[in-house]
Simulated assay, not measured.
Amino acid sequence: MTVVVGHLPHKGGRGSLDLGLQLAHTLGRPLAVVTVVPRQWATPSLARVDGEFAEYARQVGERAEAQAREYLSETTVEVEVRYEAVPGRSSSAALVETARRLDAALLVLGSSTDGAEGRITVGATTGKLLHSSPIPLALAPRGYRSDAVDGVPRVTCAFSDNDASVRVVSRVAEVARGVHAPLRVASFGVRGATMYPPEIGLSAEDSVLAGWRDQVVAAQQRLVERGVVDADVERVIGTGAGWGEALSSIDWHPTELLALGSSTVGPAARVFLGSRAAKIIRHAPVPVVVLPAG
């Protein structure tokens, strides 16, 4: 199996390459750096435009490979790397097709350069894949850096109290074992700005949040009782007035992974992102791995 990185110069920077290298090195898998270049129309033209278009597509692929080679030449880890430029009118479809052909374990993508440093900003291609990919997606925050030498220091699994989430924890536990990293289970709760009318006050919201916390503590403990995780697995709860505050209320190692499952209401064996997962991704300070439903 291969770790596939979707790479295009000036779109996403080198974060996806650093994350792809980190994951390939940790998993002991080869790395494939894939650039989607424009595909020509099926009907040839009598004008010179076809030749010019083909030359443009070739140059896009060559620039992407040269940039990726320059970035990856700085590492000291040994990973087998291949480079491909694949034609496609849809970047998301071409990446999925290539990932399938290469038997990809993960498809790694970077963040849009329009987003905030250190956060994941979903561009058009990533957005489509977050609602259709049959392959696990790994998303790098903008500006992400990893020398890959130390592998993955920890895998945190986002958990909510339902059967689907329990299955996700079980799958993520396997991921953590695969990358030789300790597992942590984390639940996040947000005190909404308009949970109750102003005359009732914040105390009611705090009381509801406290009750939710008690339920989550019990749900996390049941993971141990059911044998989903070992008793020594760290279990934490993050809360706040918003999702950013909730995620930042717990500690993070800058190169750990946050893993979560996609919604079960979407197509089977596909990523289909719900609103809660989308908010967690948007505020995550570390790379995120999204598993397809199933």
Rank of each mutant, 00 (worst) to 15 (best):
A85I: 04
H131D: 14
E78L: 07
E52R: 13
L137S: 03
A24D: 09
L129M: 04
G192F: 09
A176R: 05
R14F: 15
A231D: 02
L183E: 09
Q221P: 03
V60S: 06
L258R: 00
F188P: 02
V288N: 05
L247H: 04
V224D: 01
V152K: 00
G244D: 07
R184P: 07
R63Y: 11
S160E: 15
Y56N: 13
G211N: 08
V286E: 05
L102N: 08
A105Q: 09
P198H: 15
L183W: 02
Y196Q: 11
Q22V: 13
A32P: 11
S90D: 05
K11R: 15
D251S: 14
M1H: 07
G240H: 07
V172K: 00
P198C: 12
R58S: 13
R39F: 13
A210I: 07
V229C: 03
A176F: 09
G266D: 04
G261H: 01
S16Q: 06
G115Q: 10
I281G: 05
D232F: 11
L273V: 06
W252K: 15
S146Q: 03
A94E: 13
L31I: 09
R100Q: 14
I281P: 03
A68H: 10
V228H: 00
E80V: 08
V34F: 08
A193F: 14
S146I: 11
L257Q: 01
G240L: 02
R171I: 01
H180G: 09
P287W: 01
R14Q: 15
V152W: 05
T125V: 12
R171S: 01
P44G: 02
Q40D: 15
V265W: 08
V286Y: 01
A269K: 14
A173E: 11
E74Q: 12
S73K: 07
H131L: 13
S203R: 15
A64H: 11
G143C: 05
V289E: 00
S170I: 01
E52Q: 14
L106P: 04
T239A: 08
V229L: 06
S160W: 00
L17T: 02
H180K: 03
L27Q: 04
L247A: 08
A94K: 09
E205M: 11
A164Q: 12
Q22L: 10
